[in-house]
Design a binder for these strands. Structure first.
Length: 264
DNA sequence: TCCTGATCATAT
DNA sequence: ATATGATCAGGA
């Protein structure tokens, strides 16, 4: 049997999560019925937004263990050495184009997929990685040309109940929702981006800490603290610095959740 | 407890 | 080394 079983309410899921975790729609069964592991693995990327959202609804309420079983994937014992596992499982489950290409997860739709780990109150557990920060050769770049702006222009957020106390296989996939920044969100992002980029281009990278920015922050994004990449020094001279990435602060993604699912 | 800095796997 | 996917972990 595939993932037909009735959705069992998990003890981890509190009443307040009703808005986040919908029961598996009945039609889901029809949708995945007959899908072999091979078919799922080679599933074509969705061609329309409706198709994508339908697939997304099909995953809501499932545990990672259930989805992994569908896809013939082994659930790791911990994520310490497989931090991107859940995100990649969800990519596969939704038919996102595989690999680490520098393009949206759903190129035809211009949609970026982001899993969003949350606790049982619907609060994000982590910041959200957006993209690497260019540290050189970007003095002329404008906000609308930036990777951050492009990456965040259309995002499919997929909440995932992922408190560390919950075994990985029991973590529950939530209801995905599409987001495009509204005017005020856009402005907050642009403001932070411009401030951070100005510091970078003027040689202030070593002054930037995670606390900078209202919604967007710059933090290390590297194999380890010894990794180096080209950057601009305090006097404009070329230096080597720790590679950085842009991240969305969890307070920001929390607001997105509130907008999508309401207060309560 | 939370947040910032550090880190892990994989593909190109 | 860079880009993809993120979470870990300890000091404030």
């Amino acid at each position: 049997m595939f993932i037909l079983g009735t959705y069992k309410k998990k003890s981890h899921v509190h009443n307040t999560d009703r808005c986040l975790f919908m029961q598996r729609p009945k039609f889901l069964h029809v949708m995945l019925q007959g899908c072999t592991k091979a078919r799922l693995k080679t599933m074509k990327s969705p061609q329309t937004l409706d198709e994508l959202m339908l697939r997304c609804q099909a995953l809501a309420g499932l545990t990672l263990g259930q989805l992994a079983a569908e896809l013939g994937t082994v659930v790791p014992n911990n994520l310490k050495q497989d931090k991107g596992w859940a995100g990649q499982l969800l990519e596969q489950g939704l038919g996102a184009s595989a690999g680490s290409k520098a393009e949206p997860d759903f190129p035809e739709l211009g949609v970026e997929l982001k899993t969003l780990p949350i606790d049982s109150l619907g609060k994000p557990l982590e910041s959200t990685y957006v993209c690497v920060a260019p540290l050189t050769g970007i003095s002329q770049q404008q906000w609308h040309d930036s990777w951050v702006c492009q990456k965040l222009s259309k995002v499919l957020w997929l909440p995932l109940l992922a408190e560390r106390s919950i075994p990985i296989a029991d973590r529950v996939i939530g209801s995905g929702f599409l987001w495009q920044p509204d005017a005020s969100e856009q402005q907050l992002l642009q403001q932070d981006w411009e401030e951070l980029m100005e510091l970078i281009t003027l040689g202030g990278i070593d002054q930037i800490r995670g606390a900078h920015g209202q919604v967007l922050q710059l933090r290390p994004k590297a194999a380890n603290s010894r990794a180096l990449t080209a950057a601009v020094g305090a006097d404009g001279q070329p230096i080597q610095a720790l590679p950085r990435g842009f991240y969305l602060k969890s307070s920001f993604t929390q607001q997105l959740l509130r907008k999508a699912f309401g207060q309560s």
